[in-house]
Amino acid sequence: MDVITLGETMVLFTPDSTGLMRYAGNFSAKVAGAESNVAIGLARLGHQSGWMSRLGEDELGKKVLSFIRGENVDVSRVSFDPSASTGLYLKEKLAANEMKVHYYRKDSAASGMQSDDLDEAYIAKFKYLHVTGITPALSQSCYETIVEAIAIAKKNNITVVFDPNLRKKLWTEIEARRILLELSAMSDIVLPGIEEGEFLFGETHPEKLAASFHNLGAKCVILKLGKDGAYYSSETDKGYVEGYQVDQVIDTVGAGDGFAAGFISGLLDHLTLKQATERANAVGALVTMVDGDVEGLPERSRLLDFMNATNREDVSR
C-alpha cells in the first residue's frame, strides 16, 4: 500500500447560479475533503491509497463513502456514528472570480474521531502518512488522533507528509500557530503555501521560510507559490520550479490537495525532488481548470499529456 490519510470529508452544495446564495434555486451536491481529495488524486494516478474517518449514519455519509470507494480508495477503516451527522459546506459564487465558502461541520461525526479509532497494523502497511492542519482544528480528540497517527507512522518507519492547510475560521490564531508548528516539527515533509509560511514565521521569502521549517526538523519542504510555481528544499537539493499557465482559472479550491497528490505520486515513482515538484504543479494547475474539488484531478495519461505539451501556455486550449 502507498499512502494513508485521515480527516473529514463533507458534502459540498454549490448553487447552479452566480450571485448571492439567497437567490439560488438549485444546487449541485458533490463530495469534498482535503485528505480524501489527496487519496482520490493518488488513486487516479495509479497508486494505492486509503482514507480513514468517521461519517454520520445518514444519507450524506452514505453518499460520501460510496463516492470515495468508487474512486478506488480503500475505505475499510471508515466508521459510521449514529449520534452525529455528516458535515457539509456550501460554495457561494458571487462573481466569476469571487467565491465564499460556508462550513456547517460543528459537532460532526468526523470531529469525534478518537485515537482509539486508529488501527496500527493497518497503518503499518503504507509507505506514506498524509495529514493536514484541518483535522486537529476540529476538536481536541481529532488533534490527539493526528498526533497518535504520526507516532504510529514514526514507529513503523512511515514517511509523514504534512500540509498545514490553515483554516482560520476553525480556531484562534494563537492555537493554530502553536499546533501547526508542532506538527511541522513532527513531520518529514511539509507542504506549506506562502501565506501559511507568513502566518507561521512572519516571512515571505521562500528560501528563508524553507530554512525555518528545516530548523523545526522537517527534512523536505515544498513551498507552494501559486501561479508562480513552487520552491523545493532538502539537505541535498533545492530550487524553483515554474508554474503551469492556464487560460482560465475556474475554481482554485482543491488545487493544494492536487499539488500534494502530485508530489507524493512523484516520490512514489522515484522522481527527483524537482521532477516531483513539477508534477505537483501540473496536477494543481489541472484542478483549477475544473469546477469542484476532485473533478479536475487527472488520471495518469491526462497528466502526462498536459506536462508533455510543447508550449505550456497552450496546454489548456
Rank of each mutant, 00 (worst) to 15 (best):
S233T: 02
L297M: 07
A282R: 10
K238C: 13
V249K: 14
A276I: 09
E235V: 05
E242K: 15
E278D: 10
E242R: 12
G229I: 08
V287L: 12
G258D: 03
G258I: 00
L216R: 12
E278V: 12
D291W: 00
E278H: 08
G254T: 04
N215L: 08
I222H: 03
Q245T: 15
S234R: 06
L216V: 00
T236V: 09
Y231H: 09
V249D: 05
D251L: 06
V290E: 06
H270C: 14
V249M: 11
D269T: 13
S234T: 15
K219E: 10
Y232S: 02
G243H: 09
V241L: 03
L267V: 10
G226R: 04
G262P: 10
G239C: 12
A280F: 05
L267S: 10
L297G: 07
G258E: 06
D228L: 08
E242F: 06
A282P: 12
D251A: 13
K238F: 05
Y232T: 03
A280H: 04
L297T: 02
G256W: 03
V283L: 12
K238V: 01
I222D: 03
G239E: 11
T277A: 02
C220M: 11
V249W: 06
A285Y: 07
Y240T: 04
K227R: 12
G239H: 12
G229V: 05
Q275R: 13
R279F: 01
A285Q: 07
A260E: 04
V253S: 00
V241G: 08
N281M: 01
G254E: 01
G292W: 02
T272Y: 10
Q245F: 11
V253G: 02
A280G: 11
N215R: 12
V241W: 00
G226D: 08
A276D: 03
V290R: 10
I264H: 04
S234K: 09
D257P: 09
F263W: 08
E278L: 13
R279Y: 01
T277Y: 02
G292K: 02
D269A: 15
K224W: 04
R279M: 12
L225K: 10
L271D: 14
A280T: 05
D257R: 13
V221E: 07
V283I: 11
I264L: 12
